[in-house]
Amino acid sequence: MEAGQLLEITEQGNRFLSQIEGETGINLGACYQCERCTNSCPVAEFMDIKPHQVIRFVQLGQRSRLLGSRTIWVCLSCEMCSAHCPNEVGVAEVIIHLRNLAARSPYPAHEKELEIFYRKFMGELTRFGRINEIWLMTSMNMSPGILIKKVKDGSFLPELKLGLELVKRGRLHFWPKKSKAAKELRRLQEKLKGR
């Protein structure tokens, strides 16, 4: 957002605000825009909407801008912002909730690779009940476009080099360890229907 740019309250205004407040149990009205959250955030410089602005944008009903933002994918859930807020506004919780909403919306994720990683992670989790890093990375790299992108931007070889080093040092195993309870997790996931 440009400095000094005026934002209007959208028609979504109160509706979106009450939705987010209701679903997170957080009182966003307590925010007085002191920016402590943003100042404590280690990745604010990489965000298009800063943490304190996220709160304001929710108040203004800027749903589409938030769900399409880079911020909701770049956030590390490190909880610095929430811990430093003088008014107990759970900024980190609001952001992760927006990420969940975005993942279920038609808005393309601003950080596509991260979203794919999380999806593949859930796939491996429900398949074996546990994560095996080699299987996870393979499944990630086999997603459309990922391997080609990594080869093109030169990040694939370093990744491979690190992987081989980890194998050599006994930190990666080819064979996944499975939990007998994986089936129960799949059943749970089905029952929740993507919740």
């Binding site: 859930s77 990420r99 993942a103 979203e115 990683f117 999806r119 992670f121 859930m122 989790l125």
Partner: peptide, 9 residues
């Protein structure tokens, strides 16, 4: 991953 995609999970 679950935290990002599925709040119930």
């Amino acid at each position: 991953a679950a935290h990002s995609l599925s709040e119930a999970m």
